[in-house]
Each structure stands twice: as structure tokens, then as C-alpha cells.
Design a protein around this nucleic acid. Structure first.
Length: 551
RNA sequence: GCGCCCGUAGCUCAACUGGACAGAGCGACUGACUACGAAUCAGUAGGCCGGAGGUUCGAAUCCUCUCGGGCGCUCCA
């Protein structure tokens, strides 16, 4: 099993700590102490730096710098790992990685899998799940990319991840959708009709009405609203599937709310809750005692009218997910649903599932900007730019990268002009360019009849320039970076990683020849840039973005 | 009114989850293509991390207050 440089140095520190405890130099702190070790901002502070001495002296009169020195005295330096180390500042311990350790990383790169974090555990990611009353727009795009990339990351790190879309195909808004389509249909026939008060005014319904007319001629005037609702739903979900596929997002399951009702899931769930004593009747409605489980108040499950609320269906749905045997559930929601989280968490704990098994990843709202000005959007009024239009205008790669560049916790301005610019304004091309550039180095090499031997047969110690060692160091941190992404759901870090890596490469390329008369050095450098290329490709792949050979 | 999130360079955003001197890109201004792709590189300018207190060896990061923006607070979904 491969261990990272960081893990290896951490264990050096760990051993030194144990020794110090044995010798009575330190009070026993317990072996479980979390040893801080991080990449410092400044290269002069080493490749990795630990502030452990500060931690150890907290609350005592001991001086960090002295503790640091004694610890350093106890560290068994492995010359193949650490070039040298020093105590600096007021007590930091700085490690400088031995070049030979970096060379070993390159040599073994091909056989190095990503860390197995999941160990085969099954995770269900539910995302997008937009109401099927109209086309997808920018906001849904953000959820779609986040969910898709998170699923990719989980799969790459040993989880068994499945993607799911929950279709809310019942309820008031679906009725409104049906009435709206019927109105449009009658309109096309020139029949006198009233426009429904809560109708959906978007153009898309006119198109769907035309399709219906084409298919069924004028025989549907007296059909019930349900018929029209069904027809509209079919069209809209098909459209959504197509858009998502164009965006590179594929779902394993499309779950219909109506389907769950038909299976009796809802009734069973409510019955079950009743037996557990978490339901009471008041003012003609049935309430769930959510406040017993951390929600701020109780919630209605069955309305006075006898109809279930959306929450009731969602509760049944979540229970259904658990019954399908997943170890962990992830829901990706827009920030506008955050108030809903305690409710659904209360529901699952009422059924005995730990709240920790459901992670709700919230992303902030997205505004669409054109010419620097926000574009107002409303599904109901039919004013919006669809995701499909954005994709057409910006392109899949650029759109995905744009979404992924910033933390999901921050509000996102999707600026159409910025996103589609083919310049360094748009880092996606900066990254892809590096990949294409390396391809062309290899084209050049083969034109000159150079063939690249396996890394094991190349003298990698010829890679001793500062820039070269920095690039390898950066390559080596990928595993850690990915681990952090998976654990903290901070996907935007991968785009930052790529930009940093690629910037080091471009600079190196500009200043040093890869292919030269010196065959041994050429081979070593080719191994280096090939590893850079493979890394770019790997990460872009996780982000669902192509890695072109030329552009 | 209550709750959640966000305020960092002119603009869009980072900052390894409490570490050492605050980091990129764009925009502005200089410079670099007769050897592997200039969608690139090298450099200059730009900051009271919204504000005020506090916690400690150390704060953009944690706590309190405050100002500004977003989103919630339905028998809507």
C-alpha cells in the first residue's frame, strides 16, 4: 500500500513523540494526538511544516522552540525521505523532502491507485431533482455538476456510488402544469377558454401543445387535466434527460414520487410512524412529532383535505432509500431548501437511522449574468434562460469548470461572457492547453525517433532543478487533495489544484527544453511531463471535462 | 423579528480547516516567439481580510456585538 510523503513524515513525528514520552520529556499526551503537518506558504519554510511544538506547550510554561529542538533530536531521519529538517520561527519544525523520495514517487506512479476510502460502502447521491414543471436553468446546472463530480470522486476512492433523480410528479403544481397545457392546447384550437390563475406561462408549453395536437389531433378537448399533466411531464422529463446527458450527467435511477405512492410506500410509512407513536391528529390533519427530533416544530403529513404533503412523500422516499441498503445518503440541495433539512433529518431519526448517515450538501444560489447584468428568472412566468441554452453557448467543458471553480457555499454569478471567453480569463483552457501541449511534445519526440523507456529504467535523479522538484511535489499531493475533497465535499479545490499544477508546468516548459541532445536527461524529463499529463487527465476526468490532445 | 450562508486587490475568487511576510486569474502598465504549441512566459502596480471588541504563543479562519448582501421561516414544492 502506498503511503504519502505527508503520512510518512507524520509517522516520523509520531515516533519521536512516543520516545519523548518514554523519556519523560513530555507529559503523556496520549497517542491519539492529531499531529499538524502542512505545506507552508513560503518555500523557505520547507516542503512540510509542523506546529506540533506549539500544541504541546499549550497551557504550560514550556517554550515551543525548546520542545521543537528536543523533538528534532529524537527524530530518526530517513535520508531517503527527508533531505534535512530545521527548527524555525518560534518553534516550527520544517522538513525538506529528499529528492530521491520524489524520484521514487515518479518511478512508482503507474502502479499507484487512489486511496481506498470507501472500502466498498454504498452511497446514494440524490441531486438536481428539479420540479418537472419546466426546463432546467443555471441553478440546476450547479447542483448537477456538484452531484456528478462528487459521485465520480466517491467512485474513484472506493465507494460504490449511485446517482438518483427524484421526480416530484404529483401535487398542486403538476395539476397547474396540466391546466396550463390544456389552456395552450385549446388556444391552438381556437377554443374559448380561461387561462388558469396559477398557470405556467413559458413558451415551452406551447411547443408541447403543438406536439400533442400533432399526435392526437383535436380530440383531447374534453380530456381531464390529469391527461394533460401526464403528457407535459413526459415531454419535460425527456427534455431534462437530454440536457443532462449533454452536460455529461447520467443518472442510475429516476424515481417517481407517484410511483412510490402507487407502491403504497407512503401509506406504509405513515402507518409505521403511527405505530411508533410519532403521529397525532389536530384540526383535521395528521402531524409528525418532528420537534422530538430536533426540528423547531411538528409538521403536517396529511392535510385536512386528506392529501399528503410534499414532506410526507419525501419522508417515505428517504425511508425507501435506506431500505434499498445504502450505507450513506447524500442529498444535494440549493440553499433555498436549507430550512427543510432539520425536518427530513428528524424524520429519519424517528425511524432509528442516525442523522450522520444523511449528508445534506447545500449550494448557494446562482445568478445568471449577461453583459454584467443579472437576468431575471421565473419558471412560473416563463422567463428564463435554460441550461440547455447555456450549454450551447458556453460549451460543456467551460460550463462545468466554471461551476466548479468556486466553493459551493458562496453565491455564484454565472457570467456568460466570462464563461465562454476563450482566453486565460477562463482557466479551463489554461489547463487543457497544458495537456495538449504535452501531447505535442510527445509527437515531437516520436518524430525524432525517441522512444520512452519505462520509468524504472530511466535515471530520474537527473531531475534536480528546483522547478522539477516542485512539480513532483505538487503531483505527489494529489492523493491528499482528493481525500480532502471526498471527506469535506469541497470540490472546488480540484480546479485550484489543476491551475496551480499547470502553472508550474507552463513556467517550467518555457524555461527548459524537454527534448535535447542529452538523451538521458530527455528521458527523465519526458517521464516528468508524462506524469503531469496523466495527472491532468485524471483530474479533468473526475471533473467530467475532456482532456484534448490538441485544441 | 428568528435561523442559515456570504462580505478578502478595481472585477471573479483562493487561502490546506487556528500557523510564519495575504495568494491566483482577469483588467491596467512593461517586456519575451529563427529549437518541443505565445490559448504561453517574466515583471510592475494594486490590501486596515466589511467594522469594533474578545479568546491565545499566533486569527481572514473561533466567540460576542455591529453594518451590508443572499436565502429560508406554508396544511407550497
Amino acid at each position: 500500500m502506498y503511503s504519502t510523503i505527508k503520512e510518512e513524515i507524520t509517522s516520523l513525528l509520531h515516533e519521536a513523540l512516543l520516545k519523548a514520552e518514554e523519556k519523560g520529556m513530555l507529559p503523556p499526551i496520549g497517542k491519539s494526538i492529531n499531529i499538524p503537518l502542512e505545506t507552508p506558504r513560503y518555500p523557505s519554510h520547507g516542503d512540510l511544516s509542523s506546529s506540533i511544538a506549539f500544541l504541546l506547550t499549550q497551557g504550560s510554561s514550556a517554550r515551543p522552540i525548546e520542545v521543537a529542538h528536543s523533538l528534532v533530536g529524537l527524530i530518526q531521519i530517513d535520508k531517503e525521505l527527508v533531505g534535512h529538517l530545521e527548527v524555525a520561527g518560534r518553534g516550527f519544525i520544517n522538513f525538506f523532502i529528499a529528492p530521491s523520495r520524489l524520484h521514487r514517487f515518479l518511478r512508482e506512479f503507474d502502479e499507484m491507485p487512489l486511496p481506498d476510502i470507501g472500502k466498498g460502502r454504498r452511497v446514494l447521491i440524490e441531486f438536481v431533482s428539479s420540479n418537472p414543471t419546466g426546463p432546467l436553468h443555471v441553478g440546476h446546472g450547479r447542483g448537477a455538476v456538484l452531484g456528478d463530480v462528487l459521485a465520480n470522486l466517491l467512485e474513484a476512492t472506493g465507494f460504490k456510488a449511485e446517482r438518483e433523480y427524484y421526480i416530484n410528479d404529483v401535487g398542486n403544481q403538476i395539476q397547474a402544469l396540466g391546466r396550463s397545457l390544456k389552456a395552450r392546447y385549446l388556444e391552438l384550437l381556437g377554443v374559448e377558454h380561461e387561462w388558469p390563475e396559477d398557470g405556467y406561462q413559458g413558451e415551452y408549453l406551447i411547443e408541447i401543445a403543438r406536439a400533442l395536437l400533432e399526435e392526437r389531433k383535436d380530440g383531447c378537448q374534453d380530456f381531464p387535466v390529469d391527461f394533460f399533466a401526464e403528457y407535459a411531464l413526459g415531454h419535460i422529463t425527456e427534455e431534462m434527460k437530454t440536457t443532462l446527458l449533454n452536460f455529461g450527467v447520467r443518472f442510475d435511477h429516476w424515481i417517481s414520487e407517484k410511483g412510490l405512492y402507487k407502491m403504497g410506500t407512503l401509506n406504509k410509512t405513515i402507518q409505521d410512524l403511527k405505530e411508533r407513536g410519532y403521529i397525532y391528529e389536530q384540526e383535521g390533519a395528521f402531524w409528525f412529532r418532528a420537534s422530538l427530533f430536533g426540528d423547531e416544530k411538528d409538521r403536517v403529513l396529511i392535510r385536512e383535505t386528506g392529501e399528503p404533503t410534499y414532506f410526507a412523500g419525501d419522508l417515505a422516499y428517504h425511508l425507501n432509500k435506506y431500505k434499498r441498503g445504502y450505507d450513506r445518503l447524500i442529498n444535494i440541495w440549493g440553499q433555498d431548501h436549507h430550512g427543510y433539512a432539520p425536518r427530513i433529518k428528524a424524520a429519519i431519526s424517528a425511524f432509528g437511522y442516525s442523522k450522520d448517515t444523511l449528508d445534506i450538501l447545500l449550494y448557494q444560489m446562482v445568478s445568471l449574468l449577461r453583459d454584467g447584468k443579472p437576468v431575471a428568472m421565473s419558471t412560473r412566468r416563463g422567463e428564463f434562460v435554460t441550461l440547455s441554452e447555456i450549454l450551447e453557448e458556453v460549451g460543456r467543458d467551460a460550463a462545468r469548470f466554471y461551476y466548479l471553480m468556486q466553493s459551493s457555499r458562496a453565491h455564484l454569478d454565472f457570467d456568460l461572457e466570462l464563461a465562454k471567453q476563450k482566453s486565460t480569463d477562463n482557466p479551463v483552457y489554461y489547463v487543457q492547453y497544458a495537456h495538449a501541449r504535452i501531447s505535442s511534445i510527445f509527437a515531437q519526440a516520436s518524430k525524432r525517433g525517441i522512444r520512452l523507456p519505462p520509468a524504472k529504467e530511466v535515471n530520474l535523479s537527473l531531475l534536480n532543478l528546483k522547478e522539477e522538484l516542485e512539480i513532483i511535489t505538487k503531483l505527489e499531493t494529489l492523493r491528499e487533495e482528493i481525500t480532502n475533497c471526498v471527506i469535506n465535499y469541497e470540490i472546488h479545490r480540484l480546479t485550484t489544484y489543476l491551475i496551480e499544477l499547470v502553472s508550474k508546468f507552463h513556467s517550467y516548459y518555457k524555461h527548459h527544453r524537454i527534448i535535447s541532445q542529452d538523451l538521458a536527461k530527455t528521458a527523465a524529463r519526458l517521464i516528468l511531463v508524462r506524469t503531469v499529463q496523466m495527472t491532468i487527465k485524471k483530474v479533468l476526468g473526475l471533473l467530467g471535462i475532456s482532456a484534448p490532445e490538441r485544441m
